[in-house]
Amino acid sequence: MSDDTIDDAPLPVAAPAPPSRPTSLLKQRLRDLVRAPGAVAGLVVLAIAAFLAIFAPYVAAQNPYDLMQLDIMDNMLPPGSKLGNGATAWLGTDDQGRDMLSAIIYGLRISLGVGLISVLAASVIGSTVGVAAAFFGRKVDAVIMRIVDLQLSFPSILIALVLLSAFGRGVDKVIIALVAIQWAYYARTVRGSALVEKNKDYVAAASSLELSTRRILFNHLLPNCLPPLIVVATVQVAHAIVLEASLSFLGVGVPVTEPSLGMLISTGYAYLQSGKYWISTYPGVALVVLIVAINLVGDRLRVVLNPRLNG
């Protein structure tokens, strides 16, 4: 992992500078991008999803949570039907007469939000713990890693179910459960690369300058553990979103009043047998496209940020 790529290379197409040829970094990045059309497509999808999520109130035809805007007479209309107010429901409506397209855009907001916030919180907590484990070593390291191993040996969904069965439903509670599951991944990843970095010269140099422990940790050690952290975090966003969707589908995740994509799919489950496919199908398609896009970008990042794999 070359140190110079971290500060100056914007994501997600950052490439380690070629060792010998004086090609410009930008050119190298462009080449890397063209070489992975999947990642480009993924980025485009993510940009669109982010835009829709942020500007949902301006983009969506109706506010699906505002009961005043809903008309129960519009319920269960197939895709392309005209609503009572003259608008067209391109993806149909649900049992409450909600326009599915609007519901999906708002659902995207919650799904993405839950995914990003939980990953952000978990990565901060996890990497702090991981760096601490690597830096202090010995007993601290042994204890922390035992806990991490124990937790990682247990399927994430079970941990989430236990926590949520104790906490009850709610967006905040889902986020707490996701953080509790995910911190261990970051702790392990960051500890691993921090151990490698710790033995490099610049850390020794920083210690010999008698910089404070905290400065060494946060200004020197942590930034150099970033590339693997970024790769894990990207994949974990996808993981978190799927997990939240699954939990919501099981009825222990977000409440009915704040439907994420998983909640929308769950709503449609009851009507699937009667052939009203659109309520479950389209939010699912949105979810899948989102997850595939994140994974495509993550997959490329793994290659680009890991010189060992660069063949």
């Binding site: 799927v242 589908f249 449609g268 489950y269 479950s280 899948v288």
Partner: peptide, 15 residues
């Protein structure tokens, strides 16, 4: 295969 949420795949298979 990694990306598809498996509860949704289940629903689609039922469908």
């Amino acid at each position: 295969g990694f990306s598809l949420p498996n509860f949704w795949i289940g629903l689609m298979l039922i469908l």
